[in-house]
Design a protein around this nucleic acid. Sequence first.
DNA 1: ATCCCGAGGG
DNA 2: CCCTCTGGAT
Length: 212
Amino acid sequence: MKKSEKVADILNILQKLYPKPPIPLNHKDPYTLLIAVLLSAQCTDARVNTFTPALFELADNPFDMMHKDVDDIKAIIRPCGLSPRKSKAISELSRILVEKHQGQVPCDFDALEELPGVGHKTASVVMSQAFEVPAFAVDTHIHRLAYRWGLSTGKSVEQTEKDLKRLFPKETWIALHLQIIYFGREFCPARGHDPQACPICSIYGRKGIKKS
DNA sequence: ATCCCGAGGG
DNA sequence: CCCTCTGGAT
């Protein structure tokens, strides 16, 4: 089978399962979305959801957040891990948004990546989900799935991103990111993965993939 | 006891 | 490139 047919098939499966993937943690507002994505980096959505209400009650905009004590932020986001670094990032980033961007989250890849705590992947999710700009960043989850599905060589995350951007049409990118993440969590997890239980691996999976 | 994960820094 | 940072999950 040709790769393009496989890609079309995979897109079909994802589209059927997740026709309209929910924005992470249901934050449509760019600022709260940015914070939520930043926090969910090494944390499950479910866990992030347990403390974001308290965090956004403390402050749900950069003008208020920049004046909050970093220790107060840290106390709230503690369950997500990496809390010292991230509390500082949230505080700093809020101040920069106010001072350099009129308190708005910039719709600009480079400006986003200059914010502390925001790298390529977080910026990409914000661009695609908050601003609906076609952006697609490959994180290690997507990297792993692309390898399992035989869409990439598995050499590096960077190479996988190039491969997938070439294989998947740009107009699919906005939904694709979350569709793959949600699919992975449900059917194709990092650990305890059963290729036969995965609707894509069971058809297209590489042979001899063991666990992760 | 070890793994996960992205950002940042050496 | 390689390492550390956290704390929950396995």
